[in-house]
């Protein structure tokens, strides 16, 4: 517990940030937000190469973007890819992390190291290697292979939050408490372990979603035009029409935001205070 006097002092004597601190923060925000803001403006600008601000504004590029024949298909493919990756990732990671924290505790350091490896392999190398090794139909250059590749590539993003959440609960004792009350392994996982690591599962899913939704290299090298995703379409349009590409980017941002909010909303609805409990520790 905090000393009750401390917050009081903090509210009474507001510390004013020094001038240079304000400048530093402003510069940082400018640096982070400038590309996003200019993309938004560019997507509604008529002409923007001779003046500081655009000469006029129009929604024409959005209309043309939505009318693109591939718009819906690529969007759908991207969502399928992200959702499938999250699903496979959860099915692989959650039980593994659980067993490593309860029965096979000796393997945890090994798994921790294994889960850094995907960061060390350049995506181009990973993609080309997979294409070569799995050069057998029906796997060869199929969306299934792509999902497999993307699962590996995004695995650390799922592993870390789930593992940290599992660390925060005493998984073994909770399991034994459940078993002594008559629960089998599946009931222990679904009713005790998963609800208690839900915050970790949610942040892992979010990270995986945003990674996979914007994935370009693996998709273009493994499946290419056969299973076109939204990033592929976007890159294609940067060569055709920059304004339409900007409109696509804005759509992409917006969807990422919406899905994040959706996942968080589903999470907080479904768990009822579990986050609060974890935070209270």
């Amino acid at each position: 517990m905090k000393n009750p006097q401390k917050p009081l002092r903090e509210t009474n004597k507001k510390v004013r940030p020094a001038g240079w601190q304000i400048v530093a923060v402003a510069l940082f925000l400018f640096y982070m937000l400038l590309p996003i803001v200019s993309t938004y403006i560019f997507s509604v600008a008529t002409r923007w190469d001779r003046t500081i601000l655009p000469e006029g504004y129009t929604l024409e590029f959005y209309i043309r973007a939505f009318q693109t024949s591939y718009f819906i298909i690529t969007l759908r493919n991207s969502l399928i890819l992200s959702a499938a990756t999250i699903l496979v990732s959860l099915i692989v990671i959650v039980p593994t992390v659980y067993w490593v924290h309860t029965r096979l505790t000796g393997f945890k350091p090994l798994l921790d190291v294994l889960m850094i490896l995907p960061f060390g392999i350049p995506t181009v190398v990973l993609a080309l290697a997979l294409v070569q090794v799995y050069n057998v139909p029906p796997l060869a250059r199929s969306p299934i292979l792509l999902i497999g590749a993307v699962v590996v590539y995004s695995m650390p993003f799922m592993y870390r939050p789930v593992s940290n959440a599992m660390q925060a609960i005493d998984a073994l004792t909770l399991t034994e408490a459940g078993q002594s009350l008559g629960a089998n392994v599946f009931q222990v996982l679904s009713k005790i372990i998963i609800p208690n690591i839900l915050p970790g599962i949610l942040s892992g899913s979010l990270l995986v979603f945003s990674t996979v939704f914007a994935e370009y290299t693996l998709t273009s090298l493994i499946v290419g035009a056969k299973f076109k995703t939204f990033p592929l379409l976007l890159v294609e349009y940067t060569r055709i029409n920059g304004n339409i590409a900007a409109a696509f980017s804005v759509v992409s941002f917006t969807i990422a935001w919406l899905v994040s909010i959706l996942i968080l909303w589903v999470g907080t609805k479904g768990q009822n205070g579990a986050t609060e409990t974890i935070q209270a520790r």
Binding site: I169, D170, T173, L174, S180, L181, N196, A274, I278
Partner: peptide, 13 residues
């Protein structure tokens, strides 16, 4: 067989 643990082991959720 019921069990009571040193660390309580109540389900936090």
């Amino acid at each position: 067989i019921g069990m009571v643990f040193q660390a309580y082991a109540l389900f936090p959720n």
